[in-house]
Computed example of a mutant assay.
Amino acid sequence: MTTSILEVNSLAKSFGAFQVLQDVKFQVDKGDIVGLLGPNGSGKSTLLNIISGFIAPDRGSVMLDGACISSMSTFRIVKEGLARTFQLPVMPQKMSVLEVAMAADTSMHGVMSTLLNGPSMRRAERATREQAMRLLDELLLTPVSHLPASAISGGQKKLLGIVCALMARPRLLMLDEPTAGVHPNLRQDIVRALHRLNEQGMTLVIVEHDMHFIREACNRCIVLDQGHIVASCKPQELAANERVVQAYLGTTVAEPNRELIAS
């Protein structure tokens, strides 16, 4: 029985004459926390958008637990068990944090037309509320659950984005730069929350360019540069990898400068 939950096979993507991804191949095993990193312009966001169904690849395929999801809609991919967050989550102006979390429950989509009697509807709403409140508590958002989602801090919006993704009950969660622009104290809360999710059985792929965060959060990392995978290794091996050093610093560098990657 295979242990992989995600397989990316020979993905390629161009925008006009610009080749963004070329022959990208990797797999993620169940229970992993994998960091997907690389310098700006390396193709990370395009790869995440292809895997999560927001754009189509020119070539190649994406497999989730053995099923091809390459041609599926984003909603169908979520139903299949893969959810994602966004780097800059935009929250509704007039909904509370709790209401936003409840609205993200994909199991409730279409309930109004399929549950005809009042008690069934109320039970479904109660279950959704309980799930949302549990996740808000796990992600340290209970104290702000009554506030407008647009009024909370940027870091708290990132946490709420994770809650919304988890409301879909995914097996694989992909996060797009979850700590970018976040206060250092809240950053540690996010790291601890991700580790708790992983201990509960969640597989995580974290798109990042911050190597320090990758070392804190991940047990394996994949490095992209100019649309190619240049490394697949443990985080502590990054500074010794010449391809990674060149990708981030542009040239072969003296040993002391490797601290820019190792720190």
Rank of each mutant, 00 (worst) to 15 (best):
L6F: 01
L6T: 03
N9A: 08
F15K: 15
Q19G: 09
Q19Y: 05
Q19R: 13
Q27C: 11
Q27E: 12
G31Y: 08
G38I: 04
G38A: 13
G41E: 09
K44F: 06
T46F: 04
L48P: 01
N49T: 10
I50W: 03
I51V: 14
G53A: 13
I55P: 04
V62T: 06
M63L: 13
L64P: 03
G66M: 10
R84N: 01
F86I: 09
L88R: 15
P89W: 07
V90Q: 14
K94D: 15
K94C: 15
A101V: 07
D105F: 02
D105S: 12
T106P: 01
S107H: 12
S113R: 13
T114R: 11
T114H: 08
E125C: 13
A132M: 06
M133T: 12
L136N: 03
D137Q: 14
E138P: 03
V144I: 11
A151C: 07
K157P: 02
L159Q: 09
L160G: 01
L160R: 02
I162F: 05
V163A: 07
P170F: 09
D176A: 05
E177H: 10
T179V: 15
A180N: 08
A180P: 06
A180R: 08
A180M: 10
I190M: 08
V191C: 14
L194W: 02
H195N: 10
H195R: 10
T203K: 03
V207E: 01
V207F: 03
I214H: 00
C221W: 00
I222H: 00
Q226L: 15
I229E: 05
V230D: 05
P235F: 00
P235G: 07
E237V: 07
N241V: 10
V244I: 14
V244G: 01
V245Y: 03
Q246H: 11
Y248I: 04
G250K: 11
T252I: 13
T252N: 13
E255H: 14
